[in-house]
């Protein structure tokens, strides 16, 4: 079936099987492999993308369900001139990653969290990231990255 959606501002149209998951549509049909597949069971959050601005786990959404929607992946976060999005910049500044596998999902989940709660406490961030697992960092620097990003003027425009 033909599935159309907007990915990072670009209209996409691909002929895929009805059973195609959004994450596979993004990785295989669109060719954007920044969104990782971790557990593939709605647990780890590695495949988190924004669907109409809200975080979702793209392993548990059919591409067909997202037809007509706006999707943002990690590739759509930085500005066109290469300047990092404030959440990405905060990860760099705070050393918010080690192996990096969970990072795209973390960045998307934090972006959604900060949209809903622009001035979170540390507790808000820890609770808000309950759907994203990291096996390297112990979360400390990821939480710090979210808090630093929340203080970026760009996030409050």
């Amino acid at each position: 079936m033909k599935v159309d959606m907007t990915v990072n501002g670009t209209p996409e149209s691909h002929d895929v099987a009805a059973r195609t998951l959004l994450v596979d549509y993004l990785r295989d049909a669109v060719g954007l492999t920044g969104t990782n597949i971790g557990c593939d069971t709605t647990s780890c959050g590695a495949c988190t993308v924004l669907l109409n601005g809200e975080s979702v786990k793209s392993c548990t959404v059919l591409a067909a369900q997202a037809a007509g929607d706006d999707i943002t992946t990690i590739e759509g976060m930085a500005h066109e001139d290469g300047t990092l999005h404030p959440v990405q910049a905060a990860f760099q500044e705070c050393h918010g990653l080690q192996c990096g596998y969970c990072t795209p999902g973390m960045v998307m989940a934090i972006t959604s969290l900060l949209k809903e709660n622009p001035e979170p406490t540390e507790e808000d961030v820890r609770v808000g990231l309950e759907g994203n697992l990291c096996r390297c960092t112990g979360y400390h620097n990821i939480v710090a990255s979210a808090l630093v990003a929340s203080r970026s003027p760009e996030m409050h425009r």
């Binding site: 709605t42 669907l51 975080s55 979702v56 989940a109 959604s112 809903e116 309950e130 759907g131």
Partner: peptide, 9 residues
């Protein structure tokens, strides 16, 4: 329920 991503869907 679940986590924020789950609650969004």
């Amino acid at each position: 329920i679940g986590d924020p991503q789950v609650r969004h869907r």
